[in-house]
Simulated assay, not measured.
Amino acid sequence: MIFDEYTIKSLIRPVPDFPKPGVVFRDITPLYQSPRAMRMVADSLIQRYVESPVTHIGAIDARGFLLGAVLAYELNKPLVLFRKAGKLPADTLSESYTSEYGECHIEVQRDALHGGEQVLLLDDLIATGGTFLAAARLIKQLGAEVYEAAAIIDLPDLGGSRRMQDADIPTFTLCAFEENE
């Protein structure tokens, strides 16, 4: 299936002032309700990473789980979950970060990686980059490396993809929305 950025962007709904005033939330629910668009997104990412040295798929809570599970299955790679604090059982590592919504914490199970792995980090979008950067710090603490951080959407006006690239984390997104779009 041929990737069509226009189709993807047209199915991402802007929701002004959600979850707080001044924020334009990019809702991917309509995209997931279109089997054609979902296949386009999944196939594009699968083709990008099918012959890469990625050893693990890291999925960020919660919308990253949707793509992460599909890619882990299709690429036959283990899935590592990065969850909000208090959601994972067993021994975890935690990192704090600041998002566009405030101070947050993300965790990963201590035995999820053992060192030397190449992790593809996935989420629905890159905003401020805080969640991705926190997950990358956790990956490093476990002795692994971030191969690339990928998302459906980049919000470049919030500076996240720039912050990630400044931290030597390669990024890839399928589309971008400027503040006024």
Results as ranks from 00 to 15, higher is better:
28 I>N: 03
29 T>I: 05
29 T>A: 09
29 T>G: 02
31 L>P: 07
32 Y>Q: 12
33 Q>E: 10
34 S>Y: 12
34 S>V: 08
35 P>T: 11
38 M>Q: 13
38 M>L: 15
38 M>G: 12
40 M>P: 04
42 A>W: 02
42 A>H: 11
43 D>N: 09
43 D>L: 02
44 S>I: 01
45 L>K: 11
46 I>R: 11
47 Q>P: 01
47 Q>D: 14
47 Q>Y: 06
47 Q>H: 04
48 R>P: 10
48 R>L: 10
48 R>A: 10
49 Y>S: 02
50 V>K: 11
51 E>T: 10
57 I>M: 01
59 A>G: 12
60 I>C: 07
61 D>K: 02
62 A>D: 13
62 A>M: 13
62 A>N: 06
63 R>N: 08
63 R>L: 08
64 G>A: 03
65 F>T: 07
65 F>M: 15
65 F>L: 14
65 F>R: 14
65 F>S: 13
66 L>C: 00
66 L>A: 11
67 L>T: 00
69 A>D: 04
71 L>F: 01
71 L>G: 01
71 L>Y: 05
72 A>L: 01
72 A>T: 04
72 A>K: 01
73 Y>S: 13
73 Y>R: 12
73 Y>P: 05
75 L>W: 05
76 N>F: 08
77 K>P: 04
78 P>N: 11
79 L>I: 03
79 L>Y: 03
81 L>R: 09
81 L>W: 06
82 F>T: 13
82 F>L: 13
83 R>S: 13
84 K>G: 07
85 A>L: 09
85 A>Q: 13
86 G>W: 09
87 K>Q: 11
87 K>F: 09
87 K>H: 10
88 L>I: 12
88 L>T: 10
89 P>Y: 02
89 P>N: 00
90 A>T: 13
94 S>K: 12
94 S>I: 15
94 S>Q: 15
96 S>A: 15
96 S>I: 07
97 Y>L: 07
97 Y>I: 03
98 T>M: 04
99 S>K: 02
100 E>C: 02
100 E>A: 08
100 E>H: 04
101 Y>I: 00
102 G>F: 10
104 C>S: 08
104 C>R: 05
105 H>N: 11
107 E>I: 12
107 E>R: 07
110 R>T: 15
110 R>L: 13
113 L>T: 05
113 L>R: 03
113 L>N: 04
113 L>D: 04
115 G>L: 06
115 G>D: 12
117 E>Q: 08
118 Q>R: 14
118 Q>W: 03
119 V>S: 08
120 L>D: 00
120 L>N: 00
120 L>R: 02
122 L>H: 11
122 L>M: 13
123 D>C: 07
123 D>P: 10
124 D>Y: 08
124 D>V: 07
127 A>R: 00
127 A>D: 03
128 T>D: 03
128 T>M: 00
128 T>F: 00
128 T>Q: 01
129 G>M: 02
133 L>I: 11
135 A>C: 14
135 A>D: 14
135 A>S: 12
136 A>Q: 05
136 A>P: 05
137 R>I: 07
137 R>T: 02
138 L>F: 15
139 I>F: 12
141 Q>N: 12
142 L>R: 11
143 G>M: 10
144 A>H: 09
144 A>E: 09
149 A>S: 13
150 A>S: 15
153 I>N: 08
153 I>W: 02
153 I>Q: 04
154 D>P: 09
155 L>S: 06
159 G>Q: 06
161 S>K: 11
162 R>M: 00
163 R>I: 02
164 M>W: 04
164 M>A: 07
168 D>E: 15
168 D>H: 15
168 D>G: 11
